[in-house]
Computed example of a mutant assay.
Amino acid sequence: MSELVFRAAEPADLDRTVELMGLGFPVAHKFSRGFLQWQYYDNPAGPPLGCNIDDGARLVGHLMGIPLNVRRRGQPVTVTLIMNVATHPDFRGRGLFLELVRRVAEMSAARGHAGVVGVANAQTIRAYETRLSFQNVAGLEAHVEFLPQRTDMARALATADFAHRWTDDTLGWRLKNPANPLKIVAETADSLIVEGASSLPFVRARGAIPREGLTARGHGLAVGPGVVLGLTPAGTSRRRLALPIPERLRPSPLRMIWLNHDRPGDRLDPDRILFSFLDFDAF
Rank of each mutant, 00 (worst) to 15 (best):
S2K: 08
L4I: 02
E10Q: 11
A12S: 11
A12F: 07
D13Y: 06
L14T: 11
R16F: 08
G22S: 10
L23V: 04
L23Q: 02
G24M: 00
G24N: 02
P26W: 01
A28G: 06
A28I: 13
L36M: 14
Q37N: 12
Y41M: 07
A45Y: 05
A45K: 04
P47M: 07
P48D: 11
L49K: 09
C51G: 11
C51A: 13
I53S: 03
D54C: 10
D55R: 02
G56Y: 02
L59P: 00
L59M: 05
G65K: 07
P67Q: 05
R72V: 13
R73W: 09
G74P: 04
P76R: 04
V79K: 09
T80Q: 12
M83C: 12
V85Y: 00
A86Y: 01
A86W: 03
H88P: 02
F91M: 05
R92A: 02
R92N: 02
G95K: 02
L96Y: 03
F97L: 01
L98F: 10
E106Q: 15
E106C: 15
E106H: 15
E106T: 15
V116K: 12
V116H: 11
N121I: 00
T124H: 00
R126G: 04
A127N: 03
Y128W: 04
F134S: 10
N136Y: 15
G139T: 12
A142C: 13
V144T: 08
F146E: 13
L147W: 12
D152M: 01
M153S: 15
R155G: 05
A156M: 04
A156Y: 07
A158I: 05
F162N: 13
H164G: 07
T167V: 01
T167F: 00
T167D: 00
T170V: 00
W173A: 00
L175N: 01
K176P: 00
N180K: 02
P181V: 05
L182S: 06
I184Q: 03
E187G: 12
E187I: 05
A189F: 07
L192S: 03
G196P: 01
S199W: 13
S199N: 09
S199L: 13
V203H: 08
V203E: 08
A208R: 12
E212C: 09
E212K: 10
A216F: 06
G218T: 04
H219Y: 15
G220S: 11
L221N: 10
A222E: 09
A222Y: 10
P225H: 15
V227S: 11
V228A: 12
V228F: 12
G230D: 13
G230T: 12
P233V: 08
A234G: 08
T236G: 02
R239S: 07
R239M: 08
L241W: 14
A242L: 05
L243K: 12
L243V: 14
P244L: 12
P244V: 10
I245P: 06
I245E: 06
I245A: 08
P246C: 07
I257F: 05
H261G: 13
H261C: 15
D262W: 15
D262P: 08
R267T: 14
P270G: 08
L274V: 10
L274G: 14
F275S: 15
F277P: 07
A282Q: 09
F283N: 06
